[in-house]
Design a protein around this nucleic acid. Structure first.
Lengths: 154, 154
DNA sequence: TTATAAAACTTTAAGCTTGAAATAATTGCC
DNA sequence: GGCAATTATTTCAAGCTTAAAGTTTTATAA
């Protein structure tokens, strides 16, 4: 997914865009992963889950997390398991529907995340330093239109 | 890495851009992975390696592959192992430097890749259908500037 | 009711991924 | 030449990831 078009022709510009997009996100992701590991001894998936939970103090279902983070159900199970064993997150069984459990950050988890989020934002600002804030807004707008064309189709 | 900013403030626009970028590439990547699996019974990492090799008929060293694909050395070892066992790729020990081996697509591998690449390009064209070819070129240009600011630093 | 289906989640197997340690071969320097 | 440092690669342990199959609970409907 990271190599360029193998020839010229129509549609190549979109392919080139995709390659660029993928290389950009992989490069930045690798850098962030490395820093999260080095500075906070954690991983990107754990950070992702904590970020989602931080925005939902009332908690999230496993399936909410899965949908929001764009990863599979089973994946979330493993990550939450580890976060629970680290005391950063809790799984609360619900009375209403006993199939589900509400996942929440612990106080310690929220505190830990706040510190990581501040550093994380700084890193992103640095890594995307070449993009002006104005250009960032325009790019963001363009990227919004990606999904609509095909997602949600049957 | 997929959740949005937790508050407003300076630097937020770059963070928002990063979130968008990541969500876009994850969404597209997931779709491509699924189709590669369904249509060709293969994986994205295998496709990546084959794409890189397809562009280098003379072959690539393991370290070339690792650098080009932005993944670790050990990672490439495993993927190439599997491709070799499937008869799509060969590892040729070299006379000059016996630490290295030259990795090449087999004839079968090249044929298989050509078929996949054609389908792949069509998929990308479809998935990025909302982006005009013109806009694609502009976006690609913007993304090029990502690296220079911080990569290659010590 | 009471089967049947659907939903939420976990488990499993296979493969991907990293960073670190281990191997093996080459290079540089004295 | 001989030895330390470097380079290319593999191995390893831990964790991430998916798709598919399994479990438990809830909803549906005859």
């Amino acid at each position: 997914m990271v190599a360029g078009p193998t020839s010229a022709g129509p549609g190549k510009d979109r392919l080139r865009l995709w390659i660029r997009l993928l290389r950009a996100s992989r490069t930045i992701e690798a850098e962030l992963r490395e820093r999260l590991k080095k500075e906070f001894d954690t991983t990107l998936p754990r950070f992702d889950v904590m970020a989602a939970l931080y925005r939902s103090p009332e908690g999230m279902l496993m399936s909410d997390l899965s949908r929001f983070l764009l990863v599979s159900n089973g994946n979330v199970t493993g990550i939450v398991d580890r976060l629970v064993s680290e005391g950063l997150v809790t799984r609360a069984r619900r009375n209403g529907d006993r199939r589900t459990s509400m996942v929440r950050l612990t106080e310690e988890g929220a505190k830990a995340f706040a510190a990581m989020a501040a550093a994380h934002e700084g890193w992103v600002g640095q890594l995307l330093g070449n993009v002006s804030e104005d250009e960032a807004r325009r790019l963001t707008g363009m990227l919004k239109s990606f999904r609509s064309n095909w997602e949600g189709r049957e």
